[in-house]
């Protein structure tokens, strides 16, 4: 039972890691590409670490909480680095596929 649950979590994590990398390669502009790897960080590595925590907690050596440290650190730092990357891209005026917003004076 535990083994089945661990296997499902491992496969989910690996699949999302793969999808994140696929998005990094296939999406069109930088702002879209920023979206892909965040899935790999949260869902992918998150469920892999959950699987590892589950597996080592049921081995008979007590609770295994090392994984929580990595998960917590990743979940705190992922938004910060994504924000800094977006800021750097805006600073360098990278081309975006999104249409430019209407200027404020032409509206209303």
């Amino acid at each position: 039972m535990i083994e089945l649950l661990t296997s499902i979590l491992i496969l989910t994590g690996a699949l999302f890691t793969f999808i994140g990398a696929l998005g990094l390669v296939r999406l069109k502009d930088f702002y879209c590409r920023l979206h892909g790897p965040t899935k790999a960080t949260t869902l992918g590595v998150g469920s892999l670490l959950l699987a590892s925590s589950l597996w080592f907690s049921t081995r008979g050596t007590g609770l295994s909480l090392h994984e929580l440290l990595v998960t917590l650190f990743l979940f705190i730092t992922a938004p910060v680095s994504a924000h800094l990357l977006a800021k750097a891209a805006l600073h360098l005026r990278l081309k975006s596929l999104a249409p430019a917003p209407e200027s404020e004076t032409s509206g209303t």
Binding site: G13, A14, T17, G20, A21, L24, F30, R33, L34, P37, A40, T41, G44, V45, L48, V70, L74, S81, L85, A88, A89, L92, L94
Partner: peptide
């Protein structure tokens, strides 16, 4: 350049996995 930084960040995450 931000693309390459993003790729390096993703490499670190993949290494953890």
């Amino acid at each position: 350049v931000p693309d390459r930084i993003l790729a390096l960040d993703t490499l670190a995450v993949n290494a953890i996995a």
